[in-house]
Design a protein around this nucleic acid. Structure first.
Lengths: 215, 215
DNA sequence: ACTATATTCACCACATTAGGGGATAGCCGT
DNA sequence: ACGGCTATCCCCTAATGTGGTGAATATAGT
């Protein structure tokens, strides 16, 4: 049985090229093409697709919002995001809205058909760079919810004092004054901190210290 | 230049078959094979791999724990989990421990070489069913920790891009290169950011950006 | 007693960031 | 058409941070 596909994209050229691509493979049947998501519920209801290809930037209703609506109304429909965007926010929002896959337009041709077939076998096709982002997002959410992971980096008490001062925005001079030690000593501590945290600049130190709440 | 690969797996047969597979492709160089992760830090330190293949079930140190250790000690090393397990917990823990990819052993042959190459180009290879699980995990975590709006500082889109780059530890030069603008332009944006966030140093910017979730 | 680590301090050379100017061009809204 | 905002670029000087090398104390552990 062929896979019923519906396409949402405001770009006529893309719509047409996707249709042509899918028509070359008898496994696919394009059951609907739409230039906006205003009536996506009606559209999906009448065309009854197995898979929906969804663009993000569209006039009227945002593609991500459409995903949210469709997954609520048609939980069995697999939605594949196809877009040019790969910023964290859109990727994250799309996934949370219920998308089953996310591929970038710049590598459509060869992989689109494979991606759709993968959806039907329970897979979640993603462009490589998107997959990496997804893992990172998951890592972040995992680290946050895990309270104790304040992974010890074997910082000494003094180093923690210095680190804490850094995170509070103090300069080396100010730290030296606050801790009653010399500027050069502050530097020594910070060099050690760099080693232990595997970073090479103050900004990275601050980011790491906060994210892993070492402070 | 070939990709240096290290293998951690307690099953001799699997180790050998992976070695044979990789040796058929000149792009790979197996620089170490180990039957447990007890000395993984030393092993990686001396063999200096680009990519580590890690089994989960091993005597002594658990593979996931090894991932945690290795990503902390060698942040640049890409770790690919290869295992027979696909339960939520192990997948989730592996990802959070810092794995860059996760593929199931039952589909090794054809895809392993591709997966390793994908790692080197910034991708995160995952078996289709794993990818689906990862998305579901992300959807769950996303619903729990709905991010709050957090005070707007009226940063322009461009300023947010620059801010985000700063938080990721990039220097002005690197940001200029990444955004295809001049060093001086980066500085201009940062001056504005200083004004809007009421701060006077990069470290304060990073601290404020992370704590108030502006990034 | 010997070793390891933490803490302290110093010097040099170089790179980067901060703070003060000012300038051009495009876009948007009234 | 004007002012306001964004984004882009440039110059200069002073301040601060980075990297490498070295070393003196003290304190704790084996």
């Amino acid at each position: 049985m062929s896979i019923r596909v519906a396409i949402f994209d405001d770009n006529k050229n893309i719509r047409n090229s996707v249709i042509m691509l899918l028509n070359t493979d008898p496994d696919f049947e394009v059951v609907g093409t739409f230039s906006d998501a205003k009536h996506c519920v009606d559209n999906v209801f009448t065309s009854r697709p197995d898979v929906v290809l969804m663009d993000i930037e569209m006039p009227g209703i945002n593609g991500i919002e459409a995903v949210r609506i469709l997954t609520r109304e048609f939980p069995h429909v697999q939605i594949l995001i196809q877009t040019v965007f790969e910023d964290d926010e859109r990727v994250f929002d799309s996934i949370c809205a219920g998308a089953a896959g996310y591929i970038l337009k710049n590598q459509l041709n060869s992989s689109l058909t494979d991606a759709i077939k993968e959806l039907k076998t329970g897979g979640s096709p993603m462009s490589p760079s998107i997959a990496r982002k997804v893992l990172q997002l998951l890592q972040n959410s995992g680290e946050k919810s895990r309270r104790k992971p304040s992974e010890e980096y074997n910082l000494t008490p003094r180093e923690k004092e210095v680190l804490s001062a850094i995170v509070n925005g103090l300069s080396y001079k100010m730290i030296a004054y606050e801790l009653n030690i010399s500027y050069e000593t502050v530097r020594s501590h910070i060099k050690k901190i760099y080693e232990k945290l595997h970073v090479a600049s103050l900004t990275e130190v601050v980011a790491k210290a906060i994210n892993q709440n070492i402070v």
